[in-house]
Design a protein around this nucleic acid. Structure first.
Lengths: 351, 351
DNA sequence: TATCCGTTAGCAAACGTTTGCAAGATTGAT
DNA sequence: ATCAATCTTGCAAACGTTTGCTAACGGATA
C-alpha cells in the first residue's frame, strides 16, 4: 500500500473540470419561481401549492437536480450521518452487527459513516471525527473512548451510544449483553454436566465485555465450589487462537471445559481439540458467545450463548431516538438478555 | 424493527438545545486575527507567518475548535467522503474487503460512507446517494448500477469504480478477478486428478463474477473433452446453501467434483458431503473461490482460488488516484490474477 | 530617500441550502 | 362589497468555511 503515500499529496483539483452542479436556483429559473419555493417543494409538509410543487418537481426531474446534502446539513447543522467507530471485521459478529445497523439507519433516512478505530491514535480521537462531520449521532463498537473525548461530545450535543461497554460519563448511553449472566449460564451447564476443570478463554487484550463474561463465569464456577482457570489469547488472528488453544489443552492441568469470549475463539478451540485427539464433548466441553452463523454449522455444532444482533441494533435505535428528542435525558445502559443454545459441544445434563 | 416507523417522524429538533458550534470566528476573535487567517492556519502550505499560526493554533486548542467538514465541503465542492455501495456482509470476504477499503481510505484522509444496496430500489439509485453527498468517489461492490445512473455520475464528474463487475460505459473504471482463469485452473485440477463428473455451483442470482467463473470452468472442462453440470443455489443463506448441496449430491447423476462460486458455498458443500457420507476428496472433490480465512481452517482444508483482497483495494486506490488527477481519462478495467491454493479437498495430481 | 518586491493579513464574495418574516393572493363569512 | 383568516410566495439572512484580490508592511536595492 506504499503508493498511497503520494495519493493525498497529489493536487486532485488541478484539473478542476468538475461540472457545475445543478442548484436550486437553476430549478427555480426553469420553473419560474423563487428558489425558496423549490426548497419548500422538497420539504415534506411545507406550505406550497400542490400545482406549484408539481411544476417544480417536473423542472427538477428535467434538470436532474439533486439537493446538496452538504448545504442542507450546513444550514440545519444536522447531516443525517451517523458515525460508526468500528474495529476489525475478522469476527463475523462485528460484520453482521454493522450490516444490521446500516440497514436500520437507512430505514430512518440516516447513513453510516465508517471510522476504523485502528487508524486513529488510541486516545479516543476517532470519535472526534463524528464532531467534524456534524454527525447526528455516533455509535462506538470498538476502540478507546476517553472520558475527555466523551465529555467533548456530550458538551457539543452529539448523542453517543456505546456498543459492548459502558462508560461512567453522564450523557453517554450504551447497550451491552448480559455478559455476566451469559458466563453464569455457561458455568452452570459445565457444572451440571460434571465438568471438573472449567476454564475461561478471553481476548488477547481485555475488553469490557470480555471481562464481564469471564467474571460472571468464574464467579459462578466458584459458587459451585470449584475453581476456574482463566486464560487469554496470545494474539488476535485465527492462527493465534489455534496456537493458544493448543497450548492450553496440552498443558498438564488442561481444562475439560472451556468457555470462550466469542464463537470465533471457541471454533479455534474445537479445532485444536480435534488435532489433539480430544473427544468433544466427552473429553472436552466448549461453549462460545454470540451465536454466529458458523456456530450452527454441522462441522462445529457449537453450544453457545446467543446474543441477538437485531435486538442490539433495535436498542441502539431506541436510545438514539430518545436522546435526539430529549438531549438532556439521563444516560442509560440497556442490557440485552442472552440465552444458551445447546448443541453438540457440551454433554447432556443428566435428568 | 417496527418502532423505527415513528423515528423519522419525530421532530428531533423540537428541543434545539444544540450547543452553538465553535467556529472559525470565535478562534479569530480569541487570537486577535481575521478569520481568513484562521482558515489559512489550518491549510497546509498557506501563506501565513509561523508565529501567527502558532498563536491561532493555541487559541483553537483552547476553544476546542474543530473545522466543520460540511462547510469546507460545501465551498470546495469536495467532501472527503467516498461512498461504498455494498451488499450483505454474510460472506466474510465482503466484510474483509470493506475493512481493507476503509483502512486504505483512512490512510489518504478519506472516509467511507456505507450505502446498503438492499434498501434502495433495484434501479441503481443507491449510487445516486454519492452524488447527494458530494462524494469524492464511489465504489460499488453490490447492487445494480444502471447505465443511466452511471452516465449521470460520469457527467457530474463523480469517479466511480466497480468492484467485481464491468460496465460498458465510458468513464467507469472497474477491478475484477481473473474469474475465467480461476475457473479454468479449477477445471484443470479436477481433470488432472481424474474427476469424471465435474459441476459448477453458482450464486442464487447470477452475478457478473459468478457467470465468468462458471463460464471459465465449463469451457475448460469442455476443452478437456468432458461436460460440466451447472447448478445454482436455491437461496442466499447458509441453510439454503446446505440444502442445495444436499440435493445436488444425492441426485442420480451426482457430480464427483464441484467448483463453487465462493468459499462460503464450498464449505456448505463439504458439510453436505459429510452428512451424506461422501469421502472428500476420494469420492468428491471441492474447490472454492476467494480464499477466506475459514478455508484454511483445519475443519475444511479447502482447496480454493486465492483472490487477494489487498490487491483489489490497492488497484481501486490507484484507479481513483488516476481519475481524480485526470477526470477524463479512458475507463480501464483491472484484472487481478488469481491462483489455486491446494489443500485437502482435492486429490493429489499423479506425477 | 525613493522604489520595488515578497511576504503576510484582511475584506468580501462565494458554496447551496433552509427558514423567519412580511407581503400578496385567495377564500369564506358577514 | 368588506374584512378577516388562511394559504402561498418571495426576500434576505443565516450556516461555517475557502479563496481571489488588495493593502499593509517590511527589507533590500538603487
Amino acid at each position: 500500500m506504499n503508493d498511497l503515500k503520494t495519493f493525498a499529496k497529489t493536487d486532485h483539483n488541478r484539473y478542476q473540470a468538475r461540472m457545475k452542479r445543478v442548484t436550486i436556483k437553476d430549478v427555480a429559473r426553469e420553473a419560474g419561481v423563487s428558489y425558496s419555493a423549490v426548497s419548500r417543494a422538497f420539504t415534506e409538509g411545507a406550505s406550497i401549492a400542490p400545482e406549484t410543487r408539481a411544476r417544480i418537481e417536473a423542472a427538477a426531474k428535467a434538470l436532474n437536480y439533486r439537493p446538496s446534502l452538504l448545504a442542507r446539513g450546513l444550514v440545519q447543522s444536522r447531516s443525517n450521518i451517523v458515525t460508526l467507530v468500528c474495529g476489525s471485521m475478522a469476527d463475523p459478529f462485528d460484520a453482521l452487527f454493522m450490516e444490521a445497523l446500516a440497514g436500520a439507519m437507512a430505514q430512518v433516512g440516516k447513513r453510516l459513516m465508517l471510522v476504523p478505530a485502528s487508524v486513529y491514535a488510541d486516545d479516543g480521537s476517532a470519535l472526534l471525527q463524528a464532531l467534524d462531520d456534524q454527525a447526528d449521532a455516533a455509535v462506538v463498537s470498538a476502540g478507546t473512548v476517553s472520558l475527555e473525548t466523551a465529555e467533548l461530545c456530550v458538551h457539543a450535543g452529539l448523542p453517543v451510544v456505546l456498543a459492548g461497554r459502558v462508560l461512567d460519563q453522564d450523557g453517554i448511553d450504551s447497550v451491552v449483553a448480559e455478559n455476566a449472566d451469559g458466563g453464569r449460564q455457561a458455568a452452570d451447564l459445565f457444572l451440571r454436566t460434571g465438568c471438573l476443570r472449567p476454564a475461561y478463554l478471553g481476548q488477547a487484550r481485555e475488553t469490557f465485555s470480555d471481562r464481564e463474561r469471564g467474571d460472571g463465569f468464574c464467579d459462578a464456577v466458584r459458587s459451585g465450589g470449584q475453581v476456574a482457570q482463566r486464560h487469554r489469547l496470545d494474539g488476535a488472528d485465527d492462527a493465534a487462537i489455534y496456537q493458544t488453544a493448543l497450548r492450553i489443552l496440552s498443558a498438564p492441568d488442561a481444562p475439560d471445559a472451556v468457555f470462550c469470549a466469542t464463537d470465533r475463539i471457541a471454533i479455534g478451540v474445537i479445532e485444536a481439540a480435534r488435532a489433539l485427539g480430544l473427544a468433544i464433548p466427552s473429553a472436552l466441553s466448549v461453549i462460545g458467545f454470540n451465536n454466529i452463523p458458523a456456530a450452527a454449522r454441522r462441522s462445529f455444532g457449537l453450544t453457545t450463548v446467543d446474543y441477538p444482533v437485531d435486538r442490539v441494533v433495535t436498542e441502539i435505535m431506541m436510545l438514539l431516538d430518545r436522546r435526539l428528542g430529549e438531549p438532556a435525558v439521563r444516560a442509560s445502559t440497556r442490557r440485552i438478555p442472552v440465552g444458551l443454545v445447546v448443541r453438540d459441544t457440551t454433554r447432556r445434563v443428566d435428568a
